[in-house]
Amino acid sequence: MSVLLAIPARYASTRYPGKPLATLTGATGEAKSLVQRSWEAACEVKGVDRVVVATDDDRIREAAEGFGAEVVMTSPDCANGTERCAEALDVLGGGFDMVVNLQGDAPLTPHWFVEDLIKGLDDDRSAQVATPVLRCDGAALNGFLEDRRNGRVGGTTAVFAANRHALYFSKEVIPFTGQAFAPADQTPVFHHVGVYAYRPEALSQYRRYTAGILEQLEGLEQLRFLENNAPLLCVEVEAQGREFWELNNPEDVPRIEAMMAKMGMS
């Protein structure tokens, strides 16, 4: 099985313009761009045949080529990372059995999240797409709820059926629990990890779908699959002591840098 890993990166983010070039300082004091740290995380994943940065911006292209990444230029008309991955696959001429989308705002993604994701989609032939989910402990859930109380989008949460196929994703905290959890408690809430694995035919079909009302309201690209009845597998992953967070807003930078320092990440 041949696997392409693409890192979609666009400069014109609505919430955080220039986000891929924002710098994060590691435990040793070295500052690297978000896209470089995401690329370094991608290069640690076993079972991947090719890693590319997919962008429409020359500033990102120059930065990525500067640290040694292969770059695929894509259209500025791509509405989201899934569309950009689909176009990158076309530009490369296809030839892969699976495409992984490691979004360029998740530099703390452990390699085993992606490895488990690839295996999960390979094992479930009924699924067209797969994405990781991480069970929240009480501390993580309380952080999500605090973000929402303060009008911030923290993480995305997921609910899924008994066969692990997704029912819904939301920037609200779902399911509603109505109870307090101690920091170390395991909760029924799952944090959606913004990584995807697609079969090539699913990517091709995605661009033919019309963005539905749920995708537009939530701003979550994966809902386009659900609104068109495409089976999407949720693969539960284990943190193994690693902290995880995505960079969604400028105020997430110190949070992620603190996590990197705690984990000794350079």
Rank of each mutant, 00 (worst) to 15 (best):
C136P: 10
G18E: 01
M259C: 02
V173F: 04
A140T: 15
L145K: 13
R50G: 06
V100N: 01
A239E: 10
N228C: 05
L108H: 01
L223D: 02
T74L: 08
L21K: 02
V133L: 08
N249G: 11
T55P: 00
L141C: 05
G29Y: 09
I60T: 00
A158E: 07
M1E: 13
V91C: 04
E70K: 09
S33I: 06
S204P: 10
A162L: 13
A258Y: 09
S75H: 03
T156W: 15
F144S: 06
R10P: 10
E30G: 12
K262C: 11
T82F: 10
G47P: 05
G264A: 08
G264K: 02
V195I: 14
T23A: 15
K119C: 10
F190T: 07
E251R: 11
G66E: 00
A130N: 06
L226N: 03
G120Q: 06
S2Q: 12
G241I: 08
V99C: 04
M260Y: 06
R164Y: 14
L92R: 00
T82V: 15
G104I: 02
L203A: 05
A88D: 02
T14M: 12
P183G: 07
L214G: 11
E215W: 09
I60P: 04
Q205V: 12
G143N: 12
